[in-house]
Design a protein around this nucleic acid. Structure first.
Lengths: 121, 121
DNA sequence: CCATATACTTAGTGTTGCTAGGTATATGAT
DNA sequence: ATCATATACCTAGCAACACTAAGTATATGG
C-alpha cells in the first residue's frame, strides 16, 4: 500500500516546496494534502515534515509567519521565496531527468557492448 | 551533473536486479554499465554496490559463483533467481506507481478542497 | 619498477525519514 | 464535568543505506 520509505528520499523536499508554491500553507495541512493527493500511498509523518520545513526555512527557500485564528490553535504558515522558486525549478528538472534515466536503464534488455545506447532496435 | 545521491535510495536495488536479470554479471562490470547507461549521471560506487549484492544474495534474490579466467583476477558472478524475478517485478511496479504519484502531485496547481483530484480541468 | 586497470571487501560517516513521545487548544460525546 | 478525538506544533533518538576511504590481489604497459 504505502511506498517504500527509501523512495521518498530526495523527493519529499520537492513535493513540499511545490505544494507551498501553489499557495501559503501550514504543516498540519500539508500532511493531509499529501495523503489525499497520493491516495494514501505517501504517508508524510509530522516527524518528517517539520524538519523539512525548518531546513527549507534555514536555507531561505521559504518564510514562515504565525496566524492566529478566531478559534483553534495558531498555525505557522509557510510562503515560498524567490530563491525557493529557483530551487523548485532545479529540483523539478533533476527529478524528471532522473526518472527518464532510470526508465532508460530499465528498458535495456541486453548486455551492453559499450557501443549501443540500449535502444534495443 | 551527477544526481543527488538521495534520489538513488530505493532505486539502486531495482537497477542492479534488473541488470543482473538480463544476463549473469559481476560487480565491477555493473559499476561501468550503470555509468554508461546513465551517461555518467549515476556513479554507482563499489562501496555502495557490493553491500547491495550481498543483501540481494542473503535474501535469495541472486546466487553467486566465482569464475576464474585465462588471465586476470577471478570474478564473482551473480545470477538472478526465480524469487529475484518476482521481486524485480514488484520493484518495477512500485517504482512506476511512485513516479506516477509524484507526477500527479507536481501537476497540481491549486490548493485542494478535498473534492478535486487535482486534475486541473 | 611503478603506475594503472581490473576486481573484490569492509569499517566508519552522514543524511534523512520514522518512531514515539511531548505540549496545547477546541469540540462532541458520555 | 470528564474524556476521547481532532487540530497543530515540536523534538530526541533510531534505522536504513549511499558514500568515503581504506585495504588486498593480479595483470599490463611504460
Amino acid at each position: 500500500m504505502v511506498f517504500n520509505k527509501e523512495l521518498l528520499r530526495g523527493t519529499l523536499e520537492l513535493i513540499v516546496l511545490h505544494l507551498i508554491s501553489i499557495g501559503d500553507t501550514y504543516g498540519y495541512a500539508l500532511t493531509g494534502r499529501v495523503s489525499e493527493l497520493s491516495e494514501g500511498r505517501i504517508d508524510l509523518k509530522e516527524g518528517t515534515l517539520y524538519p523539512i520545513l525548518y531546513r527549507l526555512e534555514n536555507e531561505g527557500m521559504v518564510e514562515s509567519f504565525w496566524a492566529t485564528q478566531e478559534r483553534g490553535v495558531p498555525r505557522k504558515y509557510y510562503r515560498i521565496t524567490e530563491k525557493g522558486r529557483g530551487r523548485l525549478g532545479e529540483l523539478r528538472e533533476e527529478w524528471s531527468a532522473f526518472v527518464e534515466c532510470v526508465a532508460k536503464i530499465l528498458m535495456c534488455e541486453r548486455q551492453g557492448d559499450s557501443t549501443d545506447g540500449c535502444a534495443n532496435p
